[in-house]
């Protein structure tokens, strides 16, 4: 476990590099939100997930990061990933259940958690991991399901909320200040919940490992959209934009530096 965690930083940098590489071939992709969720996705897939556990990316717009991890696991081929958003390609922005390794099609926010709940009912022995965006918590369907999950004692559900505070153009702190505090809301809905530094793989792992066994768990992962690229960090424009050539080179340089 520890050795896997020690290699997390290197993996996360490689995932980001691969994403940037793909970004040069497509008109637009969700760099910002993908970069903010890399560490959480990495810990879930590479440290926590056991064979029959399920992972649902409810913030489907960051499907590219899930595909990159599946490629790393050799579940999908390099050739398939290279067809991402290309003519006649089999992969689009949002994950599709028809792709190997993808458990559910997502894309419209507020769907993944209920699907996970159904899976958790059918599959109580295994864990169901769900990665949500913080903006997604504005969807009423999320709270319908949050209430049901704890009421049905679906304690095998672990969700990670990518709390970068940015939607496509606005900041939740400004538009929905009452979204905060998030942790207390989950606790009051009968869940166990904790905050973590969403760019610290050890912290993500530690908080999930310490979850109460008799409750579903919500990890609020404090992240920065576009992390760790200086000109992308916390800038709304990078929700949906591909870097140009200069920005691409600059990003790669920054990632090299970040690695050291």
């Amino acid at each position: 476990m520890i050795s896997k965690l020690k290699k997390a930083k290197k993996r996360c940098i490689n995932y980001r590099k691969r994403l940037l590489e793909i970004s040069q071939k497509v008109q637009a992709l969700h760099v910002g939100g993908s970069f903010s969720s890399v560490e959480a996705m990495d810990v879930v897939y590479n440290v926590l997930k056991k064979k029959n556990d399920k992972v649902i990316l409810s913030k489907g717009h960051c499907g590219i990061i899930q595909y990159i991890i599946l490629e790393d696991h050799k579940i999908i081929s390099k050739k398939l990933l290279n067809s991402y958003c290309q003519p006649n390609g089999k992969l689009g922005v949002h994950p599709e259940v028809f792709t190997r390794g993808i458990e559910a099609s997502t894309g419209s926010l507020g769907h993944g958690l209920a699907i996970a709940a159904g899976m958790a009912i059918a599959n109580r022995k295994n864990k169901i991991f769900v990665v949500l965006s913080d903006g997604e918590l504005m969807e009423g369907s999320v709270w319908e399901t949050v209430l049901i999950i704890s009421s049905l004692n679906l304690n095998n559900i672990i969700i990670v909320i990518d709390n970068n505070d940015l939607q496509s153009a606005t900041r939740a702190t400004n538009t929905h200040p009452s979204l905060y505090p998030i942790k207390e809301k989950f606790i009051n809905f009968g869940w166990d919940s904790e905050y973590c530094d969403g760019h610290n793989s050890f912290d993500i792992y530690k908080k999930i490992s310490k979850k109460k066994k008799n409750k579903p768990f919500a990890l609020i992962s404090k992240t920065i959209k576009g992390y760790p690229i200086s000109f992308m960090k916390d800038v709304p424009m990078w929700h949906y934009r591909s870097p140009n050539k200069t920005e691409y080179k600059q990003s790669l340089k920054e990632l090299e530096k970040y690695e050291k």
Binding site: A104, L113, A114, A117, G118, A122, S141, T145, L152
Partner: peptide, 23 residues
């Protein structure tokens, strides 16, 4: 028998999740 209460969106989502598990 799963009664989700007054939560129809969850009803369909949960049905989908069960179906994905071949129920």
């Amino acid at each position: 028998f799963i009664n989700v209460g007054v939560s129809e969106q969850a009803m369909i989502g949960i049905a989908a999740g069960l179906s994905l598990q071949k129920k």
